[in-house]
């Protein structure tokens, strides 16, 4: 179950995810990271998983769970100094993931 790389690449470009300065402010406000203390369940981790996917790096089902666990609360958006719409990017990645699973 691998997302179609081209579509993920478009997503990375659409949200300019390469702007991520890796400051990790987003992780400190993320409720799912707070509950799990696993970086795949935090915004910085999710953003970088999407970037890795766009580079053709295989991501396993546990790591996909990290994308799916996002509550879309948008707390991360509020604190991102680069102004990345993190929650929306994760939401779009979820859509791609679910569509590819349904095919």
């Amino acid at each position: 179950m691998i997302l179609i790389n081209d579509q993920v690449k478009l997503l990375v470009e659409k949200y300019s995810l390469a702007r991520c300065a890796r400051c990790n402010f987003c992780e400190s406000v993320c409720p799912t990271y707070a509950a799990t203390r696993r970086r795949v369940h935090g915004p910085r981790g999710r953003i970088w998983l999407i970037i890795y996917l766009s580079q053709g790096i295989d991501v396993n089902s546990d790591e996909y769970d990290g994308l799916l666990s996002c509550l879309n609360c948008r707390a991360c958006n509020q604190v991102c100094p680069a102004g990345i719409e993190i929650a929306e990017a994760i939401h779009d990645a979820k859509v791609l993931l679910i569509r590819s699973a349904l095919k």
Binding site: R22, C23, R38, R39, Y52, D58, V59
Partner: peptide, 15 residues
Amino acid sequence: IIESRGELMLYSYDA
């Protein structure tokens, strides 16, 4: 313990 490659990669960088 974390051993899956994607999650390990999240520890490959700092700021």
